[in-house]
Design a protein around this nucleic acid. Sequence first.
DNA 1: CGCAACATTGAACGGTATCAAGTATGGTGG
DNA 2: CCACCATACTTGATACCGTTCAATGTTGCG
Lengths: 245, 245
Amino acid sequence: MVSNVPALVSRLGRRFALSPSDQQALLAAASTPRHAVKGDYLIREDWETTSLVILCRGMARAVRSLPDGSQQIVALFVAGDMLNPGELFFPRSRTSISVLTSAISLSIPFEQLGRLIANRPAIARAIWRETAAQAAVQQEWMVWLGRRTAQARLAHFLCEISYRLHIDGHDCDAFDLPLTQQELADILGLSVVHVNRVLQVLRSQDLIELRSNRLTIRDKAGLYEIAEFDPKYLSGLEPPDTGAN
Amino acid sequence: MVSNVPALVSRLGRRFALSPSDQQALLAAASTPRHAVKGDYLIREDWETTSLVILCRGMARAVRSLPDGSQQIVALFVAGDMLNPGELFFPRSRTSISVLTSAISLSIPFEQLGRLIANRPAIARAIWRETAAQAAVQQEWMVWLGRRTAQARLAHFLCEISYRLHIDGHDCDAFDLPLTQQELADILGLSVVHVNRVLQVLRSQDLIELRSNRLTIRDKAGLYEIAEFDPKYLSGLEPPDTGAN
DNA sequence: CGCAACATTGAACGGTATCAAGTATGGTGG
DNA sequence: CCACCATACTTGATACCGTTCAATGTTGCG
């Protein structure tokens, strides 16, 4: 399994609007790419954080486990996302991040990164921006966790993933969604049983199809509507080409 | 009503670990302090963001309103917090921020701020760090919104506020909590009626006292316990003196 | 083929919402 | 200083959304 690292990095360059020279510097600072398989942990709660991790291929999730055995998934990452842009400042990680598919990640040790940040403002800006973009997504999750019905939550989550894949140039009407219903439940703050029932409602309304980890959106307008989905909050994840600020 | 601005700024200096010279520069870049009264909006959803706002005195909340009229409060700010550290990168605000008490705020226009960020890395670092710290708090809110009972949510929220006030050197066992039960409900994702009942349970267990916007914590250990409160996630709000990274 | 993980279904329970009164509380004008 | 009003708080009754427990199907993989 050989990976074309320069190609991956160039995609990152586009995502974060970095000049070729900055991309080069980032690549030089990174350790060799890591190939992880489904279930592998890239970061664990309470680990000392020593490097910035970027997901180049695959999907990952950040999870917080509670004493009673339940979990809450607090973030989902797709290719191109930074896994821990905010942890630069904190000695220990507050979540565990594991991979949902086989995946490739790049790590940039903090010592190297410190130099890059000092010398290359565009890189500092990119990481900072990513910190803010992920915070915006989290706020949206808080809103549906606090104030929306199970159906609207699920629909909204599916809309978000679809849109984020769309941003990165993937097919957003049919894609792999490597999540069990238990994991969906842990994202949405629901029980597995209820997720199952709500999924069936969405299916029966011909909004989606979901079988063996593959999601097809049959009626995007309808799904957006019951989700009350407005992708504005995801603007931080788009390439900042449009010169917006 | 005269406010001692240099004193306010020096407190900010401590909070963000800025050198006197950086504090000076920050103060010079800021517009005259604004005195707001209860209910005033400092920022509105969809407004164009043009400056970084820092709360020097009082409390504020960030709220998202839903089409059906309900609301979710997604952040609570105390004196010393930056209200919109992440909005530097986005053209429009995604929340409305209004003031819960009479308050004083300082605005730093983005043009000035750009210069400061370029020339004074410590200031850039402080804002970036605040972005990350607030994201950490949001993650904790997501966990209790998704996975905890009403009682644990409320208890946890009270613990957090108490601890944040403690960080800033205020009395954390008895303090003003200028929130109606409706506002508590909008923070916790509950109905007013239920907040009222849960408050009574906490009172009947002699954990807290809450009358006319003043909270007294009678049994801190007990409250921490039912909240499963662990303040580690708030470390980003403490002055970074300890040299941790 | 057989096992393990995942998905589905039903019944009963419970936490929280909703609706509807009723009761403090505080501020205001007379 | 009191009457009044608006806002906030409290309480009860009822309904519903979502949970839990338990069992049964289904799928995919070694």
